[in-house]
Design a protein around this nucleic acid. Sequence first.
DNA 1: CGCGTTTGACCTGCGC
DNA 2: GCGCAGGTCAAACGCG
Length: 191
Amino acid sequence: MAYLPSQAGREGGSYDDLESDQPAAFDISDYILSDEVTAPASFGQPESPVPPMVGVGQTATQTSSGSNLSAAGSSSSATRSAVERLRTDEGSKIAFRTKSEVEILDDGFKWRKYGKKSVKNSPNPRNYYRCSTEGCSVKKRVERDKEDPSYVITTYEGTHNHMSPGVVYYTTQDSTSGRFYVAGCELPPGS
DNA sequence: CGCGTTTGACCTGCGC
DNA sequence: GCGCAGGTCAAACGCG
């Protein structure tokens, strides 16, 4: 695990206590981590052609109706999150911590649980989810923060190759290629 | 009946 | 080679 610059020097340790000096655009209380950091890590990179998928849901829902990121029962006030998109050789991996009473955050996609495992350094079990859309192999790991159970650590792995049925999408145009991108998705070439 | 969850077993990578 | 830990599989079960 390598931590992002904002957390540099804290390797091997906890990733709590991020409340310190994060940008104010989001009420960030999160940490971000990835196995492979291949791009500069600054939250909410405006040049990023494809914004973080959860940020999409968050933006869409909050923008449209100020509704909830978590449809599973927690109020928006009980859920704060920040995300960072990172690239790996196989795609992207995003990890973030969310203050939430529930573990299942509705990001607009349909997830199917396929495993549960207790991890060594945490009293809380880790849950494994997979996107239930046919042909989509995005995975998600969810576990409670060992040091602050009121936080949920979510790790997304991979990129959706389809649109979410439950999210209002925003498109952004890449200045160099002129192509349009759908936030949260990386559509197959030619589609 | 179809879909999602649960849960123990199995597989794999890694450190010693 | 062995043991441990993390990740995945798949059968059983529950629910709408």
